[in-house]
């Protein structure tokens, strides 16, 4: 692993009574796509804004590229790109002018800037919309413009705060691919989201947070290994007698069985060919069933098992 790009130690942030970040620690290495995953209000944006010195915090030490980050650390800011959760563009400027404005906050040289702006617009695939005003762009295109504005100056460290909210699946995939590409080109990425699928898809390391605290971190595979669940089998079935449910519970590796609204859920920790075994039992009981499928554990299961609640609301 590379050198530390961001280190956060014992960060405490209060909004009056509310403790938004509670002795929060973070260490992000060069070359990572680091995912901050947490439900709404868990403190992802607050973390980001504290790291960027946009917010004052009550306690803690924040370093970027080994140097302390302060509101006037302009040398550090040069190498940082930010895509904020709320789209920040001028309605009065065209797509091109917007990217040029934000790029120009970092890059003084005109020729370089022009090239960078063109590249950024190309990167988010907005060439056809250069002369458009933001009001005329769809939600997905607007998000892409927001990204172009954040990364045009070719920063080494990029923060993206839920860049895919309210974006259609097609655009979402484009955006995710783009982020991976930025990372391949050498940028370290901090990516916050409450969509576990996205985080799982692109992040090299994930931190799950809740109520301003780090719950756990690791690669997706590592996180999933932390929990008991290895597989959940779903079977649609009518009028399942209690006696059969009892029998299923006794199968090996089954640790929990739920039956509600004609859907049977069987939870496993370990074991092989679990699906065949449970279907075999059902046919022996002479029961017919509908749709059957098996699910591997998700980050939601990880979250559920640790906090006792769903990641998604």
């Amino acid at each position: 692993m590379g050198a530390s790009v961001i280190t956060v130690e014992n960060l405490v942030k209060r909004y009056k009574e509310l403790i938004a970040l509670d002795h929060f620690n973070l260490d992000i290495k060069e070359g990572e796509i680091f995912g901050l995953l947490g439900p709404n209000g868990s403190g992802k944006t607050t973390t980001m804004n504290c790291i960027l010195s946009l917010l004052k915090y009550d306690k803690g030490v924040i370093k970027i590229f080994g140097k302390e980050m302060k509101p006037d650390s302009y040398e550090l800011k040069k190498d940082i790109g930010v895509v904020m959760q709320n789209v920040a563009v001028f309605d009065e400027l065209t797509v091109y002018e917007n990217v040029d404005y934000f790029c120009g906050l970092y890059i003084k040289d005109k020729a370089t800037r022009k090239q960078y702006v063109e590249e950024a617009i190309q990167f988010v695939d907005l060439e056809k919309f250069k002369k458009f005003y933001p009001k005329k762009l769809s939600g997905g295109l607007l998000r892409r413009l927001n990204i172009a504005c954040g990364i045009a100056h070719k920063p080494k460290l990029i923060f993206l705060d839920e860049p895919t909210v309210a974006v259609d699946p097609q655009s979402r995939n484009n955006i995710l691919e783009g982020i991976v590409k930025l990372n391949k080109n050498g940028a370290t990425i901090v990516y916050t989201s409450h969509y576990m699928e996205e985080v799982e898809q692109i992040c090299t390391r994930i931190m799950i947070m809740d109520k301003g605290k780090n719950i756990t971190q690791g690669t997706a595979a590592e996180l999933k290994k932390m929990i008991r669940n290895t597989e959940t089998i779903h079977i649609e079935i009518l009028n399942l007698p209690d006696s059969v449910i009892e029998k299923i519970k006794e199968l090996t590796h089954v640790y929990k069985v739920e039956y509600a609204e004609n859907l049977l859920k069987v939870f496993y920790n370990g074991g092989k060919h679990n699906l065949i075994k449970v279907l075999d039992l059902l046919s022996k009981e002479d029961l017919s069933f509908g749709r059957v499928y098996s699910e591997l554990p998700t980050l939601n299961d990880v979250f559920l098992e640790i906090t006792g609640k769903e990641l998604r609301d």
Binding site: L54, K77, V82, M84, N86, V87, A88, V89, L105, Y106
Partner: peptide, 18 residues
């Protein structure tokens, strides 16, 4: 008012321009 919009102001403050 445009320049004072929370998002634009924050975003500009994140850059090298003081």
């Amino acid at each position: 008012i445009v320049f004072n919009k929370e998002e634009l102001k924050n975003r500009t403050n994140l850059s090298c321009v003081s």
